[in-house]
């Protein structure tokens, strides 16, 4: 999936890459791979997306 960085998007990831820990576990890699894959869709208008989820209470 291409990394989307929508214009007008106020969040930019300019934090430095965290230093790679030695002896990464396989599950660590899988988690990072998954985050790589979804990063673009999570960053796109995150605030607007989250704010638009409003329902009434239930039970």
């Amino acid at each position: 999936m291409p990394q989307v960085n929508a214009s007008g998007q106020p969040y930019e990831d300019d934090a430095p890459e965290p230093a790679a820990a030695p002896a990464q576990q396989a599950s660590t890699d899988a988690l990072d791979d998954l985050l790589d894959e979804i990063d673009g869709s999570l960053q796109t208008n995150a605030e607007q997306f989250v704010r638009s989820f409003v329902q009434k209470g239930g039970e």
Partner: peptide, 13 residues
């Protein structure tokens, strides 16, 4: 990865 605060909307997303 993002170097953001915990209240960042991307984490809520």
């Amino acid at each position: 990865r993002l170097g953001c605060a915990l209240d960042d909307p991307r984490l809520a997303r």
